Simulated assay, not measured.
Amino acid sequence: MTDYIRGSTRPHKPPEDQGISLAGFGIPTASMNTWMTLQGWFAAGEVPPCAGRHEWTSSSTKDKRLAIRLCADCPAKHACREFAETNNERYGIWGGQDRSTR
């Protein structure tokens, strides 16, 4: 078995000053802290109200109102909003805010 298969070789290791990078997945370095907060929340088994629902990306005013209302009690709301702001998301409901009206 080669070192690469065993996982002891990291052919794409980022430089030490760069830290963790998920840029290959479209996640900019500037939003890594927020991304990790959200992922920690999901890894703990929490399920956000937006999971598997279409209202967060719908263009219907009724759907948008429902999504914003459901975001109100979500513990990930602030991290979600910060992630959207950092990444300049322009569409959908993020952290209880309609990004398409910005």
Rank of each mutant, 00 (worst) to 15 (best):
G52A: 05
T29H: 15
P75D: 14
T57Q: 15
A44R: 05
S58E: 01
E16M: 12
I27Q: 02
A30F: 04
M1V: 15
N87A: 06
T37S: 10
R102G: 10
P28Q: 03
E55L: 03
T34F: 05
T86D: 08
T86K: 15
L38Q: 01
A72D: 09
I5Q: 10
H12T: 08
T34V: 11
E85C: 00
T86H: 11
F42K: 06
I93N: 03
H78R: 10
G40A: 12
M1N: 09
G95L: 06
H12K: 12
W94H: 02
P75T: 03
D3R: 11
L22S: 00
A44I: 06
R69T: 13
G45I: 05
L22E: 04
T29I: 14
M36G: 05
S31A: 14
E82K: 12
L66A: 13
P14M: 07
W35K: 01
N33T: 10
R102L: 11
C80I: 01
Q18S: 14
A44W: 01
F42A: 12
Q39E: 10
R90I: 04
P48R: 06
A76L: 14
Q97H: 12
A23G: 09
C74N: 03
R65Q: 15
R69E: 14
W41I: 13
S58I: 01
F25I: 05
T29S: 14
N33S: 11
T57N: 15
G45C: 06
S60C: 01
T2D: 09
T9E: 13
Y91Q: 13
E55S: 04
H54R: 11
I93S: 00
K64N: 06
R102K: 09
P14H: 05
K64S: 03
A30C: 10
E85V: 02
Q18V: 15
P15G: 09
H78K: 12
K64C: 08
P28N: 07
T2P: 03
E82S: 09
